[in-house]
């Protein structure tokens, strides 16, 4: 299963990154969502898989019954999921605002502040 999940992780990264490189703003956002999922799954898979067995202590016991899944990556992923959600939500709102301000969802059109062809005369050379 590790092999299959590792492959899945790779595919999530690849597809997320591919979408990130598109011109459509929406696709960029979708790509980010895929990447976040990919990263979480990466932590989960890399830390080792244990079928069933959540890290819970049965009532009345004092330690969970071995073998149980490693709780540490789970805690990390939980934090990461939530953070990812926050960023995702903001990114979506930002994309929406970008669209509203520029009237376009083509990322390539968003270079009015950086266009190097807009340049003033040379300064400092005495010209």
């Amino acid at each position: 299963m590790e092999l299959l999940l590792a492959l899945t992780v790779g595919i999530l990264y690849a597809s997320g990154l591919y979408l990130l490189l598109r011109r459509s703003l929406v696709k960029v956002i979708v790509g980010l969502a895929l990447l976040t999922n990919g990263a979480n799954l990466l932590i989960f898979t890399a830390a080792g898989l244990v079928r069933g067995r959540p890290p819970l202590v049965e009532a009345g016991e004092s330690v969970p019954q071995a073998p149980f899944a490693d709780p540490v990556p789970q805690a990390l992923i939980l934090t990461a999921i939530v953070i990812g959600f926050g960023l995702q939500a903001f990114a979506m709102a930002l994309a929406y605002r970008v669209y509203r301000e520029s009237g376009s969802e083509d990322v390539d059109s968003l270079r009015t502040t950086e266009d190097p062809s807009i340049n003033l005369p040379k300064v400092g050379t005495g010209e």
């Binding site: 990130l20 703003l25 960029v28 980010l32 990447l35 976040t36 990919g38 990263a39 990466l42 932590i43 890399a46 830390a47 080792g48 540490v72 990556p73 990390l76 990461a80 960023l87 903001f90 990114a91 930002l94 994309a95 605002r97 970008v98 301000e101 520029s102 990322v107 968003l110 270079r111 009015t112 502040t113 950086e114």
Partner: peptide
């Protein structure tokens, strides 16, 4: 202008975050 700047800022920094997170996961593993 702020939107254009912010979008680039956000997108590239999120890539950084993903790489960072992946690194942490691999290191923990």
């Amino acid at each position: 202008p702020q939107m254009e700047g912010a979008l680039k800022y956000v997108a590239l920094n999120l890539v950084s975050s993903v790489l960072f997170l992946s690194g942490v996961g691999l290191l923990y593993a």
